[in-house]
Each structure stands twice: as C-alpha cells, then as structure tokens.
Design a protein around this nucleic acid. Sequence first.
DNA 1: CGGACACTTCGGCGCCCACCGAAGCGTGCG
DNA 2: CGCACGCTTCGGTGGGCGCCGAAGTGTCCG
Lengths: 236, 236
Amino acid sequence: MTTRDPRAPGLAALAGLIADGTRAACLLALLDGRAWTAGELARHAGVAASTLSEHLSRLVAGGLLAEERQGRHRYVRLADARVAQLVEDLAAQVAPGAAVRPRTLRAASAGSAMARGRTCYDHLAGRLGIAVTDALTERGLLRQDTGFALTDAGVEWFGRAGIALDRTGRRPLARGCLDWTERRPHLAGVAGAALCRHVLEVGWCVRVGSERAVVVTAAGERGLGALLGLSVEGLR
Amino acid sequence: MTTRDPRAPGLAALAGLIADGTRAACLLALLDGRAWTAGELARHAGVAASTLSEHLSRLVAGGLLAEERQGRHRYVRLADARVAQLVEDLAAQVAPGAAVRPRTLRAASAGSAMARGRTCYDHLAGRLGIAVTDALTERGLLRQDTGFALTDAGVEWFGRAGIALDRTGRRPLARGCLDWTERRPHLAGVAGAALCRHVLEVGWCVRVGSERAVVVTAAGERGLGALLGLSVEGLR
DNA sequence: CGGACACTTCGGCGCCCACCGAAGCGTGCG
DNA sequence: CGCACGCTTCGGTGGGCGCCGAAGTGTCCG
C-alpha cells in the first residue's frame, strides 16, 4: 500500500452498494422515479422482507436512496437526479444489446407499451422520448451535433409553452440520457424533467397500469402536434 | 423472483468489478490514460503480484481494461473513453469534498502541481483545464448555460487552430467532466481529447514526472494567449 | 383492547472472494 | 546456455455478506 488514490475506498464502497443482484434490481425499479414500499420491492425482487429491509438500510445509509416513513410503511425513492443518472449510465454501459424476448402475451404487450413511451426517472423515454427529442432538434431548439444543449430558441420555446425551467440548481439544463430500447439519447436534465411534468399535468400523457409506461392522449396528440409538429403515429 | 429487471445481474456484475478497493485503486490510477504494467499496479496498490494478476484478468474479461502483451510485460489501460467517463462519474459522486491533506512536503508539492494542471484520461483537468474551458466559454466557443456543447464558432475555432475533430465515432464532440479538485466541469469528449493531444504535440504543455501532472511551457503561454486570450497566471 | 399487518432485528448457515506464498511458465539478457 | 525477472497458476485460509425464518416492535383498524 503505497500511493493508492484516497478515493479508492469510497469508490469501491459506492460500487459495492450496486454490486448485488437484489439491490441492483431495486435501483432499476426505482428508476421510474416513484416511491416504492419495502414490501413492494421485496415481492418485485423475490426475496424475504427481512432481507430486503437490510438492503434498503444500506442503500439509504449510502446516500443512494431517500426514505420516508408513513405509518407502518417505509417508502423509498432514488435520492436525487444524480443517482438516477448514475444508475442509468451504468445500466447503459452493461449489455448494449440486452434484448430480452418476452415470454408471455401479457409481457409482450406490456413490453411494447414500455417501448412506445415510458418515464425514465423524471423525464420521457422510449419512442415517445426519442420522438420529442428529435422534434426539438429538427426545429433548432436543441442541438446534439456538437454536444447536448438547448439553443436560445429552445429556451424561448419552453417559456412560450409555459414550462418553467428552474435554473437555480446545479443540475444541467439539458443532458442526453441513453435510451435503453432505442439506444439513442433523449432529453434529460432540468428541461427533460420539466417537459415530462408538464405533459402529465395538462393531460397530454397519462400513466398506464402500475408500470412506468405512459401513453399520449387525444389532447396530447393535438397539443404536441401544435407545439412541436409531432406526429404520434406508432406511439398510441 | 418475479418481475426483476433482466439488466440487474449485468449491472451488479459491472459494479462488482469496481467494488473492491484494490481494483478501484487500479482504475483510478489508469485514469491518467496511459498503459501501466501489472507490476507497477501491484506496487501502487500494495498487494502481491499474484493477487493483482487475478484482478487484472477480471477487469479485462469484464471489458473495463484492454491489455497488450509485450515480451514479459503485460500492459493494461482503460478500454475506452466510455469506461474512463464511468469511473470518473462514479468517483465524482463519492465524497464531493474528499479533500485529503498531504502529509509530506514532496506530496504537497506534487499535489499542487496536480491541482495546477493534469490530464484526466485524455483531456486537460485541474486549474489548467478549467481555465481553458472558461476561456472557450467566455469567447462564445462553448456554451455551458443550456447544457454543454460547442457553438458553431467553436467548431470553426478548432478548424482554424488546426485541431482536427473526428466526428465519425459515437463519442460526443463535447461533454462536461466534473473536476476533482475544482468541482467544476471542464471540456471532455472528442474536442477535449483533441485539444489535449494538440497542446502536448506542439509543446505548449509537457508532462512532469511520472504522474499525470502537466505544466504550461513558455511557448504554451504565448500560444494559448494568442489563441484564447488565456493568461497562465498561477498556472506555472 | 385485540388482532392483522408492515417492517425490523437476530442468530445461523453457506457461499463467494480477496489475499498470500510457493511453484510453474515464458521472455530477455549476459 | 543459464540466470534473472515478470507474470500466472494453484492450494489454502479467513472474512465478509446475502439469505432465511423466527421472534420482536410499531401501526392501523374493527
């Protein structure tokens, strides 16, 4: 032990939190941005409640999860957008072509709903997310060719659309998040989150089922068409 | 085990590769972008050669490292820029204020040389990296306020400076890399790598010692001043 | 107040893995 | 050719950790 980087133990500890199949499954599930109860996660992961309880304690202690106790329930969610980004990045690195074929009709239909549109932590992903990102790019509101940033016209566009962009925090206004099914970047960051929140608030998209799939409504088809010239062909 | 995400095992396996103090120390050391021999890394990490040999084999098998055998030496380096970015992101997440005070004068002087200027995988970091990034931003060549991307003027500037930007690959042209000592983003991606290679090639910067510290030369002071209006006050 | 329920704590089991030293290659040098 | 050197393979050891079920704590509801 001579000149070892002092960050090594911390780095190993952080990776160690993710380096377990059960904890990894929890983190991936929590990528939907919502809060889950300990029991839900235990059933999802297929382990005893006691086992999962210990996993959650470690993840919370490590700063990856935030918890909120309500009565006899323990709700957990990802601590913040940085953690979500980290898990997403790691997941994108692994298995660039991890196409897993669904076995049942129900799974196939849920899978295609997920492929059409879903949320990724707090922004839109799937074909819907790509379509929105592409539309923004084509209209000169977002540029991806020299990095990933909104243009001045893009910032204006958010203002005109009545979507507030909080520029006080440290989170970047725009960043690309690599899509799992489409393998192309879609809009994340403050702008991605604000856009996703907006379309859900005004009813242009609604969540379906208990999964993180979302679908475009009739109002959304009109609204997105008018705002972005977006055609939702193949998205409904 | 019911609806567990199929990516969970892969994610856990990837994190598991990093979730060991010795392997983490190797990855951090390799962030300098150069190839190390197995023996160098063993001494650096303070473990037996046999132990390190097994670690290297796992990291290579996991795709994090690339190896090259030369005679009786085994050289390893980070597999590509994506891996470097991943390790850097993880290290940035851990201990946002991991200020470790150097104990010896030699370490203090080496530390301050590192803080002045160093390479981070294949681009410039430290105060030098920040200064260059800031200069690019002030001159309207790079914008960080709405994301992180070169402007059209920025792309032109690289062309005029005779620094070729390879836009064929998948690597983004520009991206921000959070600096360890400065805690601010500096230019990474294709443009960051090209710029770093250029300043080393034309002798505007030189590496000092066997570490990854770099210093600006007299020619570099003139060149960077002319090209970016950069004053190297406090960088030499 | 008592029972159902969600979660936690505890003891115990078994596996995995980081580590070492010794022995075994293969390369390069004198 | 023989020795030095860098790396690898192999057996063995110890510690850490994921898992479970049983028992315990706290909450909600009738």
